[in-house]
Design a protein around this nucleic acid. Structure first.
Lengths: 152, 152
DNA sequence: TATTGTTATACTCTATAACTATA
DNA sequence: TATAGTTATAGAGTATAACAATA
């Protein structure tokens, strides 16, 4: 397509722009997933943190911000919403009193399960329409994506 | 394995929860991509709209909100930021005066190119580390994702 | 000094509701 | 009436900066 001749910048030549394709696709998928949100009061990010805690057990704030790819201060506010709503609790670490471990309450665990199923319903339907082979492709891609996200 | 035939409800049974895996992975990827943002004043979504317009030519507001998976009112504000900053312009449709076509200005086109390259730099590096076969997997997955996003 | 977590502040993004203008 | 777009308002999410407490 077009490039700025003076800058000599890369053009992307459509055909081979896997990065752009992946970024664009991921962005659209993300917003599509988000639009399936439940009507509850908790937002998208808070629910993701809740389901993570439910699935993976208690974690510190720093761990959560690393996993969630956000700044610690951002995660602090997300978990604030969870604790304020009674879905998670803080537990000081007895060995290192700077640390706080966050975990789900029973109410939080129940909400995590309900929410997960609600939010997966649409996507499950779409995935079931695919062939087993295509689902395999997606599963393999997910593993590759996981490695990429954790790259420095 | 993953379904309850009687209720039709998905159960998830950990092991084979492809939906959950995909949602979680996409969320992390999205936030990781976003963290590579340029230092400019424009936010993530506005930049995505700008690069879309640069690549795909003028579009109406409704078209943009469909592509972006957001409400028209949300997209209206995103393009407002673009036009206010001088990176895009409105052009009334002469055939249907309800419609407005949005397109990039020369400044917007240049910013789109610079931004795209900045934002792809990190991802390009990661993708180049993969084998050609693995990149093929990702490319195939992207095509599958595209179909999924456009599903009702 | 370095790490962990928090609060203060400001911005982007998004949705819903109510509105105008055109078809 | 239906469609395209806008504005008003509110809330979630995020970042940076400044801070406190602990190591």
């Amino acid at each position: 397509m077009e490039k700025d001749a003076s800058s000599g910048l890369i053009d992307s030549s459509e055909a081979n722009n896997l990065s752009g394709q992946l970024r664009s696709t991921v962005g659209r998928l993300y917003r599509r997933f988000r639009s399936e949100r439940a009507e509850g009061t908790l937002g998208d990010t808070a629910l993701e943190v809740l389901t993570f805690l439910h699935k993976n057990g208690p974690h510190t704030l720093t761990e959560l911000s690393d996993v969630g790819q956000v700044a610690p201060a951002s995660m602090s506010q997300s978990v604030n919403r969870l604790t304020a709503a009674g879905y998670a609790i803080r537990t000081p670490d007895p060995n290192d009193r700077r640390k706080v471990r966050f975990s789900t309450t029973p109410e939080g665990a129940e909400l995590a399960i309900v929410t997960r199923n609600q939010r997966n319903a649409w996507l499950d339907t779409q995935l079931q329409r695919l062939s087993p082979e295509d689902r395999g492709i997606i599963a393999r891609a997910c593993r590759l994506f996981g490695d990429i996200v954790d790259s420095p």
